[in-house]
Every structure is written in C-alpha cells, then in structure tokens.
Amino acid sequence: MSEKPTGRIYLFTKYERLWHWLQMAIIFTLLLTGFEAAGRFKLFGYEGAAYLHNRVGLFWVIAFLVFLFWIVTTGEWKQYIPTTKNLFDVVIYYIYGIFAGHSHPFPKTKEAKHNPLQRFTYLALATLLLPFQMATGLLYWSYNSWEAWGIDKYLSLKWLATVHVAGAFAILAFVIIHVYMTTTGHTVFGYIKGMITGWEDTYDD
C-alpha cells in the first residue's frame, strides 16, 4: 500500500468535478435544512431552513437536468451501464481483500471509471433515489396546486412528507458510506484528490 505511484490517469473532466462538488454542496444543504425543517434540530430557524430548502431544491432539479443533458450528449451514460462481471470480486474485496492487503480487483481506466458496484450504486442513485427525492420534493412544494391538478385525492401531505424524509435518510446513508469509501484508495485522500484535480495516481501491483 505504501509503494510509490507509477503513473497517473485523467479520470474526471472539469464539468464532472464541478458537478460533483456542486451536488455535494446542494445535498449537504438540503439534508441540513431538510432535517431542520422536519423539526430535528435548530440551526437556521424554521423560516430560513424552509426558504433555503425550497430554493436550493429547485436549483438542484434544474442543475440535475443539465447533468442529464451532459451525460446523454457526451456518451458518459455508458459509464453507468450495470454489469455483474467482476461484481462479486469487488464485493469480496471490500468485505475481505481490503483487510488482507489485496489490490483492488478492478483498476480504473478512462473508459471505465466506475467499478461494477459503483455502477449499480450510482445508476440506482441517479435514476431512482435522487429523482424520487426531487419528485417528492416538487410535490411537497406544489402542495397547494394538487387540487387544481386533480391529484389531491391520491396524495396526502403526511405520507408525502414521510416518504420524502425516508428518502433523505437513504441519501444520508449513501453519503456516509460514500465518504468513507473515498478513504479506501491507495492513500486515504487519494480518491478525494482525484475528484479535486481530475487526476488519480496509478500503481503497479
């Protein structure tokens, strides 16, 4: 683990890195203001928290649409095609190999930035959890239009708020594991450095 890097690889473009850190800031703000608005603690005060949450939430939806446009037009969506190939190797690595000092079974390349486990996780995140959170958030925000849209019969604010909070817990759980996983590279801050500079060090194993 302590050997010197033998080379480096440019993995993340400027836009990807900007999007990643922007989305981090957005999700961090939304989690903080969201849980405050849900009455879990006091920080900004209800009014400030609710105001920030609504504005940042709306901004997130727009920014996410831009990301979708980028991922489709650049062909980067291919990075998220799920595969079971090597999936078990990666899982076994994280529950055993990493402790025994084995090297990662899936070296990153420019063409395949994500290991199979990441592909599944990010695909589920980008197509299920995050859109679910945005959709329930938008419905929450537009609560007073439900009647005009004819959907008030099928929705209750109580249940919508509950599933929105459940989604937030799921995202927070992802954030915790995701942040921890960044420390599992060759060096503790290696992956974070990669997402800041775009370059990740490579090692011969």
Binding site: A38, A161, T162, A166
Partner: peptide
Amino acid sequence: VYIPGRDGHHLV
C-alpha cells in the same frame, strides 16, 4: 393537518 416541523412519522 400535517404541519412541517411539528409532525413526523415516528416509526420512519
């Protein structure tokens, strides 16, 4: 009426 900040689902 569900009041955000007052109400929540205890189990969830």
